Each structure stands twice: as structure tokens, then as C-alpha cells.
Simulated scan of single mutants.
Amino acid sequence: MHSVHFTAETSSNGVRERDFTVGEVPGALWSPSTGSGRAPLVLMGHGGGTHKKAPAMTGRAQLLVAECGFHVAAIDAPGHGGRPRGAHDEQEIAAMQQAMAAGEPVGPIVVRYNAHLAERAVPEWRATLDALQELPEIGTEGPVGYFGLNMGTAIGVPLTAVEPRITAAAFGLHWPDALAEYARRITVPIEYALQWDDEHIPRQSGLALFDAFASKEKTLHANAGAHKELPRFEADSAVRFLARHLGRAVTSSA
């Protein structure tokens, strides 16, 4: 079993950011700058074509740390960020680019590729969680949440379906095709966001995935707008949702 190996550290505005590796998988861990007490851990999955420290990821992590005192971890998905692309990655990316250039639906390719990435990423996430829980400031007793949209949902749904340590999750913006079967195995509280006018994911597809979750407590947030127009306040909502279910009070007006 691999342990966490820290490679860099910075601190700003009360948030401590540490780069790490677990085996060959690079990640980032955000924590409160002060205080040594244990706190819940939130795992964050990034979107397709981005990486663990993309601006949206960093912003969400800072919200979760500053407002709830959580630890927040993200890792680069296979073929993303600091990880090399393989021949299969290049093939699928080229297929997506060709479909977009031709004005053809890109959804079937994205679903297929994301399902492939999830098969590789779920074991990596579980190994990363094992390693993070060895840290004294996290430990094995505290609750664990998950927050991921788009590809972060494609990986997070199968992860949550098999990982009993995750006790609440915020998802959104994905097709049900490869995920509905996993969603039916998930019973923890869920918050799900979709865009009512999404040009890639028909609203009925988003509703079908939400409906598939077996959770007794699940909340749907549907906003007007296109795929990339998810309101920023949805991040604030996800923070409040995770705070409620992981046992922390939000300390700001958000």
C-alpha cells in the first residue's frame, strides 16, 4: 500500500495547499492553516479536459476549507493534468474533436470515454483515500464526502457505489447511460445539479440519472441555461449540503 508523499506546500488566506503523490498518482490536499484537530474529508473530482487544481477546483476547495474547516483532496484523472495520455486517450479525444467539428453529438463518445476512465480512476481514488486516512489530521473515524461534476460525476458515481466510507455526495451534469446501474446502489444523501437547457445532455437524461439514485434523501437543482452556465451559487449550495451531512456548520453567510 502506498503512502502520501508531499512534494510542495503553500498557504494563503487561511488555507494550506499541499501537492502530493500516492504511488504515481498526483494530487492536492487543501486544509485549514491553523488547528491540528481532525476534520471531515471531501474528495473532489474534476471535469473532463481539466485537472486537480483547475480554477473551479481550487475555488471549491477554498470554500470547503474556509467555511467548514474540511480537508479537501483531488487527484488527476488518468490522462489528465500531470499524467501522460495513452493511445486510447488520444483516440477518444480525437473522436470528440472530430464530432464537435462536424456538428455531431459528442455525448456517446464522452459517455464511453468517461466510463473507461472511471474503471481506472475508482481503484486509484480508493487507494488515495486509504493513504489520506493514515494522516493524523484526517484519520479513519471521520466522515467522507464527494463533490464532482461532469467527468467528476462519471467517476464519482461508481466510486460512491462501491466505497462505504463516502457518506454524502454532490453530483451533476452527466448522462445516465453508464451510471444508472451504479446510482441504483447508492443510498447516501445526494445533491444533483442539471442545466434545463443543456445542449449536450437532454433534460430527460439528467432527470433519469437523478431518478436512478436509491437515496431516500436526494435533492435536484435544475437551473435555466446551457451546459457551461451552471450558476456559481451551486458551489455554495454543495458546501452547505456537505456541511450538513458531514457534521460541520458553515461559518460564513454562504
Rank of each mutant, 00 (worst) to 15 (best):
P231M: 11
V4A: 14
L129K: 09
M151L: 14
H221P: 05
E104Q: 15
R38T: 15
E163H: 00
V22I: 14
R18S: 00
P176G: 05
L132M: 09
R240G: 06
E141L: 11
T128A: 12
T128P: 01
P136L: 09
W175T: 11
I75G: 03
A208L: 05
I109M: 03
V122Q: 05
S205R: 11
A254F: 10
I138V: 15
A127F: 09
D197Y: 04
L242H: 05
K52H: 08
V106W: 02
W125L: 14
E137Y: 12
I93W: 08
A154E: 07
V111K: 04
G139Y: 11
I166R: 03
A180K: 03
V111N: 06
E141S: 14
P176Y: 04
A8W: 13
A235I: 09
E229R: 09
G206H: 05
A212W: 07
R240L: 12
A254Q: 12
A208K: 07
A168R: 02
G27E: 08
E141H: 09
P108W: 02
V42R: 02
Y192P: 01
A235L: 10
P202N: 03
T50N: 11
P176L: 07
S237T: 12
P158F: 03
K228F: 13
A224F: 10
G142N: 10
A73K: 04
R60H: 04
G59M: 09
P40F: 03
L129W: 05
T160L: 04
V42Y: 01
R85E: 12
T140W: 06
P158N: 00
A131C: 10
V15F: 02
H200Q: 13
D76W: 00
I138S: 05
A99Q: 11
L207W: 03
V111A: 12
R83K: 10
A115D: 11
P78R: 07
G81R: 01
A102V: 07
R16H: 14
V72G: 03
A193F: 15
A224V: 09
Q133W: 02
M44F: 06
E181H: 13
G148P: 05
G27S: 08
G79T: 07
P78W: 05
H2Q: 14
E217L: 06
G156D: 06
H245C: 06
A127G: 12
G103C: 11
H221I: 08
S205L: 14
S253G: 09
A66F: 00
Y192L: 04
S215A: 15
R232N: 10
E234K: 10
L129T: 10
R165M: 09
A222Q: 12
T167R: 15
V188R: 05
T128W: 07
G14V: 08
G225T: 05
K228E: 11
H2R: 08
A208I: 08
E104Y: 00
V15E: 02
A74Y: 04
V4Q: 09
M57L: 12
A224Q: 09
F6P: 03
